[in-house]
Structure formats: C-alpha cells, structure tokens
C-alpha cells in the first residue's frame, strides 16, 4: 500500500484543500496530484502536484496513466452544498462527473474511487421518514444532481471490476472555516425562519469531513455512508445558541427575505428549514470505523465563535 498515488479534485473548497494537505503529510501516500480546471487561488501545500486540466481532457488521461493513479477522490462539493447553488451548477456537476469518470475509464488503473455526496439526496418533506438510513433514498422526483453523480460513480465501479467505491453523504457542513449556504444563512443578523415549523438539523464539522475522506483514500472501505455530527438540534435551538434573532415568515417568503440580506436560499434549503432532516450514522461507526469528533452543537459553536453576530 506504500505506493498509493492519489488524484483529487475540488481543492478550491476548504474541505478539498485540507484533504490535500493531510494526504500529502501521510507517509502511505506516495504522490498527491490535484486536478483543477484553473490554478487554485490559495497556495497548495508542499509535496502536492498540480495538473491544470478540465475533467475529461486528454492531459488528465495522460497524467492518470503515467503517474499510475490508483485512488481518485472526487472531493468537490456537490452543487447543493455550495454557497450559491443553482440549476446551471447542478448540470455542470453531473457533466463534470461524467467527464472525470470517462478519463478514469480510459486511463485504467484506478482501483479506488471516493465520492463526496450530500445528505441532500434524501430531500426533506412531510412524508419522509424522520431518520434516513443509507437505503432510504426516495424513488420519485425531484432527483438531486448529487444522486446522479452517485449513480455514475456506481456504474463506473461495476463496469471496472476490482474497483472499490466509497460514497460519503455529508450532512450540512458547518465550522469556523467552511463557507456553505447554511453557514451564511445562520450568520444573518436576523434569520428568516419558516413560520410554524421547527426543523431538525444536524451539522458536520469540516475536520470530520476531511477525516472520513482521508481514511477512505487510504483504506479499502467500500460502501455508502452518512456522515453527520452526533445529536440533533432544532433550528430554533440552533439560533438561540448562536445568539441570532429568528424572524418567522411564511414558507414562501423565506427566499425573498434572505435575498434582502443577499444570502440566497435554494428551494432545497427552504424545504430543509421547514421539515428538517436527520441521518443515521451507525453504518459509519460500525462498517467504516469512524466516529465524528465534533457533535452537531460543537460544530455550531465553532461556527458561531468564528462569526460572532453582526
């Protein structure tokens, strides 16, 4: 295992960047190659090599082949987790996945694929179970792009035998460092909440996200795993703890109210803020062998300390 060569994407994001640094510091990883369509704004850690290539370009195939890449980590955030998601970025997400996987297929030699997905694949609604296990992906529409990304990765893993696929469905990322749609929402001085609803939320600290991605990049641990901090908070509780002022408005007015403060709230996030979402993480603890170090409330506290109320 000492000859592990890892290629990862998505270092522009905080989780991807931290992951690159941790992989570079890991002695079992021989080389860390970062693929990005354009050079990242932040400096890369030592021992990390950079390939400036679009996913699917011949250069990327060449690098995958010549460096003998065994592990590919798709660590870019799914569009739903980005600060300002949109339909366009969802399509872009799916197409980028197709191209990246096509490159891996052409290069051959990839034995391990790690994909960062999101608990958004479960959706949120009045007729959804309160707690989602990994099998509980709803069958009907609307299908989030992240689910399509997962399916493409699964198709790739089945078509190339001997490939282990690890998919992480990350809960809402929240910490002092990471920038997410929910993080921005919770940083508003007056937070518009959905009148008559109090959603159950779970947060994930970016350190735990990095830790699970790192562990999957260096061990053969196939499967789909929910990742979330321990414990559940109600949104009203989270706002109280954060010292924010909640302003209940009808559900339809939440995006508009947030837009006044120039913080876009996607339809998916509005649904989450109404109906809430909790995932079961027992598979992560038992099969994958990792227990998140930051609880939901600890991740929130870290976020609040980094961004005191304005």
């Amino acid at each position: 295992m000492a000859s592990n060569v890892v290629l990862l994407t998505g270092v522009a994001d905080h989780v991807g960047g931290r992951l690159a640094a941790r992989l570079a510091a890991d002695p079992v990883v021989r080389r860390v190659i970062v693929a990005a369509p354009r050079p990242p704004a932040v400096g890369l850690p030592e021992r990390v090599e950079l390939v400036v290539a679009e996913p699917g370009s011949p250069l990327l195939v060449e690098v995958l082949r010549s460096a003998g890449v065994e592990t590919v980590v798709y660590a870019a955030p799914r569009s739903a987790d980005r600060p300002s998601p949109g339909r366009l970025s969802e399509d872009h997400d799916v197409v980028a996945t197709m191209r990246l996987l096509a490159s891996c297929q052409r290069a051959g030699g990839v034995r391990r694929l790690v994909v960062r997905s999101t608990t958004e694949v479960y959706g949120a609604g009045p007729n959804a179970p309160a707690v989602f296990t990994e099998q509980d992906v709803p069958a009907g529409a609307p299908r989030p792009a992240a689910l399509e990304v997962e399916e493409q990765a699964r198709a790739f893993a089945t078509s190339s035998p001997g490939t282990t696929l690890t998919v992480f469905r990350l809960a809402e990322l929240l910490s002092g460092r990471v920038d997410s749609a929910l993080g921005r929402y919770l940083s508003l001085p007056v937070v518009p909440t959905v009148l008559g609803f109090d959603a159950r939320v779970q947060f994930l600290h970016h350190q735990d996200a990095v830790a699970v991605l790192h562990r999957a990049s260096t061990h053969d641990l196939p499967g789909v795993f929910n990742v979330a901090g321990d414990g559940v908070l109600l949104l009203s509780q989270a706002l109280r703890r954060a010292g924010r002022v909640a302003l209940p408005v009808p559900a339809a007015a939440v995006p508009a109210a947030a837009r006044i403060a120039r913080t876009p709230v996607s339809p998916g996030l509005t649904r989450l803020l109404s109906f809430g979402r909790v995932v079961d993480t027992s598979r992560l603890r038992t099969s994958f062998g990792y227990a998140p170090r930051w609880s939901t409330s600890a991740a929130l506290d870290d976020h609040v300390h980094a961004r005191p109320p304005r």
Partner: peptide, 26 residues
Amino acid sequence: ADLLFKVPVLADIARRSGQTLACRAD
C-alpha cells in the same frame, strides 16, 4: 398521517410532543 406534518404550527407541536410519520422505518 403526513397531513399533520404539512400544517404549520401543528407540525411543530407534533414533532415536539414525540409524534412522527406513520411509516415503517420510523
């Protein structure tokens, strides 16, 4: 029933009082 979890205020009280959706998983 899911109706309970659609209605504002009622949904909040239902969850707080320990009710959940009538589905096998829960």
